[in-house]
Design a protein around this nucleic acid. Structure first.
Lengths: 289, 289
DNA sequence: CATAATAGTTTAGTTTTTCTTAACAATAAA
DNA sequence: TTTATTGTTAAGAAAAACTAAACTATTATG
C-alpha cells in the first residue's frame, strides 16, 4: 500500500476552522489553541500534503483553490470521526452494543430480578440476551464464547480460562412433608432432589451422607417448583435453598439447615469486558449490600 | 462541536493490519514497525476510543466484536486518505489542477511555442488556460486573480503586489519599405507603430526621439503582422522585434537596430504557486539556455 | 507622516507522543 | 522439562505539538 500522509484529526479541524472563521485568530479561538499552534499546525499540514494550500493577501491568508479538495476530505473524515465518537460514548454508557449473560434460575428469578429489570429500563437500546439454565450449560456457553458473563453455583474445581468471583452464600435447608422436627438422620427421606448432574445435588448428597442419612432418591427434577410440589404431595423430602423453598404460592416450612452453597459470577479470563457488562456486574454487587 | 479523539492514520493502519494479518508480529511487519510500536499504538488507540477492542486468547490477541465498528471506520478513513494521497501526487506531478497563464503574442507564438506544446503534451489531464493579449491586460488579469503567471514586457515601474523576474532581452530594429540604409534620422518615417497605450511603443518613441527622429505616426495597430504588411505596402516605416519582423511568409529586411526591450515573467507576490506553475516556469527558463 | 493596532509567523523551550531496543511474561511446542 | 513463539513492559531517544513572547508585515488612525 501507498505510504499515507499522517494527517491528524487536529490538523483537519484547523483547516475547517480557518475555512469557516473570518481570520486565523478567530479560527484558533474556535479550536481552542494559540494562533501560533494553528499556524504551525497548518504549515505542517501543507507540508505533509505537499501541495500549496494558502495564499497571502495583504496580511490575511486565504484558502488556495487547491485547498478545496483537502477541505472536502477534512469534512468527511471529521464527520466520520464524530459519528464514531458518538458511538463510543453510547458504548461507554452501555446504551449500545450487545450484552449476553447467563443465570441460574434462582439468580434470575429471586436474587437479581430487580437488577435485571432496572438494567433493561436504564439501557433500552442495548441488545440484551439472558439465558437461564443450570450452572453447567452456562459454564459451557461462557467457555464457548456464547455468553460474556454468568451467575452460577461455584464449581468444584477451577475451570481453565474462566475467572470467578464470589457473589453470595445461600442456606440449604431440609424440607419434609408437613414440616416439623426431623428425627434421627438414619430415618430421613426418601428424597426428592436435583438431578445427579447438578452441582447442588453433589453438595446436598455429601452433606446428607456426612450427617448419616442415606440418600434414597425417589424422584428428581432440575426445577425447584417441581421438588416443592412433590414435598407438598408427600412424595418425599427435599433440600432446597431457603429462598426458593419458602417463596411462592405454596411455601415449604424448613425443618433444619443442612448446609450452604455459593453463587459466583464468572467471565472468560482476559476477555475484554464491555462497559455494559461492567455496569451490570456493579449493579449485581450493589444489590447485595 | 464535540471534542474528537485524535485517532491517527497510523493507529488506524495498525488496526487494519492486525485484522488482516494472522499475528500481531506479522501485522507489525506489514506496517513496518516493531511489535512493540504496534502494541503500544493499539493500546493507545483503544484508550482513546474508550471501548475494549481486543480479547486475549491464549497468547494471541483477537479482535473484540466492538472493534468491527472501528475497523469499518478505519477502512473508510484510510480509503479517503489514500485517494487524497493520489490526488496530491498528481498535483505534484502537475497532472491535475488548473493552470492559468498569460502571454503576449511574441512569447506564445515565437519564443515559447515549443514549450507550451510540450507542456500540454506532458500534462494532458491538466486544466490549461492560455490568454494571449498585450502586456497591460495581462498584468491586470494577474492582479485580479484571473491569471497565475504571465509573460509580458517589463513594465516601466514596479507594480504593487506583483513579483517579476527577467526572462530575455529582444532586439528592436527599424524596418523601411524595401529595406536598405536609413539616411539621417530627421528624414526617417513616417511611422507605422504599436498603439500609444503599448509599452513597446513608449520604448520606441523614446529611442527615436533620442536619435533625433520625429515620431510622425500615420497608422497604428497592436498586431505586428498588420504593421509588417503596411511596411510591405509602402505606407510607412516601423520598429519591431527582429523575431517578429523577420519571421513568417513575408519577412521584412532590417535596416538598423534601434534598441531593446525586456520580456519578464510575473506572478502575484506571496501567492502560493502550484506545482504545475513551477514546472512550466522552469520549462520557460530552460528553453532560453 | 508617524504611530498604533492587527494578522500572522518565528523562535525558544516545554510537554506529549511515538518510536526503538532490550528485558520480560505467558503460552505452546518439542 | 526445555525451547520457541507471541505479545507486553520499561527505559530512553527522537519527533511532534504546544505555549509564550518576540518579531515582521500590513492596515488603520490621529
Amino acid at each position: 500500500m501507498h505510504n499515507l500522509p499522517d494527517l491528524s484529526i487536529r490538523q483537519l479541524e484547523y483547516l475547517i476552522a480557518v475555512a469557516e472563521e473570518n481570520t486565523w485568530a478567530d479560527a484558533s479561538d474556535a479550536v481552542g489553541v494559540t494562533p501560533s499552534a494553528l499556524s504551525q499546525g497548518l504549515a505542517e499540514l501543507e507540508r505533509r500534503v505537499g501541495v500549496p494550500l494558502f495564499d497571502r493577501v495583504g496580511r490575511r491568508r486565504m484558502l488556495h483553490p487547491n485547498a478545496e479538495i483537502l477541505l472536502d476530505h477534512a469534512r468527511q473524515v471529521i464527520s466520520l470521526t464524530s459519528d464514531l465518537a458518538k458511538w463510543s460514548d453510547r458504548m461507554r454508557n452501555a446504551d449500545e452494543g450487545t450484552i449476553r449473560i447467563g443465570m441460574i434460575d434462582i439468580a434470575a428469578v429471586n436474587y437479581f430480578q430487580g437488577v435485571l429489570k432496572d438494567f433493561r429500563n436504564d439501557h433500552p437500546s442495548l441488545n440484551f440476551h439472558l439465558k437461564v439454565s443450570p450452572s453447567r450449560p452456562l459454564v459451557e456457553a461462557l467457555q464457548g464464547g456464547q455468553l460474556d458473563l454468568i451467575v452460577c453455583i461455584e464449581p468444584e474445581e477451577k475451570i481453565k480460562g474462566i475467572e470467578i468471583e464470589p457473589l453470595l452464600t445461600e442456606t440449604l435447608s431440609i424440607y419434609k412433608p408437613g414440616g416439623g422436627p426431623l428425627g434421627p438422620p438414619s430415618e430421613w427421606g426418601p428424597w426428592v432432589l436435583f438431578p445427579e448432574s447438578s452441582n447442588t445435588r453433589k453438595i446436598i448428597s455429601a452433606a446428607l451422607k456426612e450427617r448419616g442419612s442415606s440418600v434414597n432418591v425417589v424422584a428428581d427434577s432440575p426445577q425447584p417448583e417441581v421438588l416443592k410440589e412433590m414435598v407438598n404431595l408427600g412424595i418425599g423430602w427435599t433440600v432446597l435453598p431457603n429462598v426458593q423453598a419458602e417463596a411462592g404460592p405454596r411455601p415449604l416450612i424448613p425443618s433444619s439447615i443442612l448446609g450452604t452453597r455459593n453463587l459466583i459470577v464468572a467471565s472468560r479470563k482476559n476477555a475484554a469486558q464491555s462497559p455494559a457488562i461492567i455496569s451490570l456486574l456493579e449493579a449485581l454487587k450493589e444489590q447485595l449490600d
